[in-house]
């Protein structure tokens, strides 16, 4: 076909070839991986870095949240009174049918379990431990539990330090399993569950205590929601449920950012603990958190 065309207009063809072929070569060169550009680059403060430095956003989920035990411990210290009716009942574990719901509630239960333990409610804690073990089996993470975890747990009832050690070991095994097996998607969903339950506990604490410290912690956690939402966005299987959770987290973060009390604050103000929110703002944000949490556990 090309040859027929060439016969018709040789001179024009040669001119075109001189233009088209180098283009084809360039396209071929790039498409074959000749030059690799980082997919995600952002501008950064270059003054403190060797020049030029390109920031590459990790494909993995590059954040480190506090452990559920720390979160539960913080809220206990802040004055949250243990109330089992506020937690997600362990019996709900059988109601979760999708992998997403199972993974989310694995995170929710991790926070609830920690809440029981820091409040010395070991009988309740055992139910949550079993719920977590059940869900971990369902989502293919059975390896995070040593064979005798439940037995060990029962043997140590009354020794809160040992129980906390067991929880810490489960946390370590979970992180290790995720890192070894590259389960980034599972990780971000699990954190989303733990995060929203932690925020929920925060809102409960707010209603019981009027502590400025809780507002600072809650604000810091809300900002962390950005990371979670971003992580959820990179989950491969973007089913409607994931989108729903992500959009709701985004909504919480956006609402917070647009609060009048927050809008005028500089980063220095945040460093210096100057975050103060009105009751109205706190109530509205709590409402959003409770709505998402309710949807998540049902």
């Amino acid at each position: 076909m090309i040859f027929v065309y060439l016969n018709f207009n040789k001179e024009r063809t040669m001119k075109k070839l001189r233009f088209v072929l180098p283009c084809v070569l360039i396209v071929a060169f790039y498409s074959c991986g000749g030059v690799e550009e980082p997919t995600n680059t952002v501008h950064l403060d270059q003054t403190q870095l060797p020049n030029p430095t390109i920031i590459e956003e990790s494909s993995d989920f590059a954040f480190a949240p506090p452990s559920p035990l720390e979160i539960a411990g913080f809220f206990k210290q802040a004055g949250l009174v243990y109330d089992p009716s506020k937690l997600n009942p362990a019996s709900n574990k059988d109601n979760y049918n999708t992998k997403l719901k199972k993974s989310l509630n694995f995170g929710v239960y991790a926070t609830d379990l920690a809440t029981c333990v820091v409040n010395n409610q070991i009988a309740d804690a055992q139910g949550y431990l079993e719920a977590i073990q059940h869900l971990s089996d369902e989502i293919g993470m059975q390896n995070i539990f040593e064979q005798e975890t439940i037995e060990k747990f029962k043997r140590n009832i009354g020794n809160s330090d040992s129980i906390e050690d067991i929880l810490t070991n489960i946390q370590m095994s979970t992180v290790e399993y995720i890192e070894l097996n590259g389960k980034d998607d599972l990780e971000v969903i699990y954190f989303a569950g733990a995060w929203i339950e932690g925020m929920y506990l925060g809102t409960l604490t707010l209603t019981e205590q009027d502590s400025k410290n809780i507002v600072q912690q809650l604000a810091s956690q809300i900002e962390f929601g950005n990371r979670i939402a971003k992580g959820l966005q990179s989950v491969e299987d973007q089913d409607p449920e994931i989108k729903f959770v992500r959009q709701n987290i985004d909504e919480i973060v956006e609402f917070y950012k647009n609060c009048e009390s927050i809008k005028g604050l500089s980063e220095d103000d945040k460093d210096l603990g100057r975050i103060e929110m009105t009751d109205e703002e706190l109530n509205s944000i709590s409402k959003l958190i409770v709505e998402l949490r309710t949807d998540m556990i049902n």
Partner: peptide, 28 residues
């Protein structure tokens, strides 16, 4: 007591690169 762990893998490139890990802390 263990809180969290994160391993950062990287490949050396023909240009300087930066990888960042965000670590959330409990206040105080």
């Amino acid at each position: 007591r263990y809180s969290f762990g994160r391993t950062t893998y990287f490949n050396y490139k023909s240009y300087n690169t930066l990888k960042e890990v965000e670590v959330a802390l409990i206040l105080n």
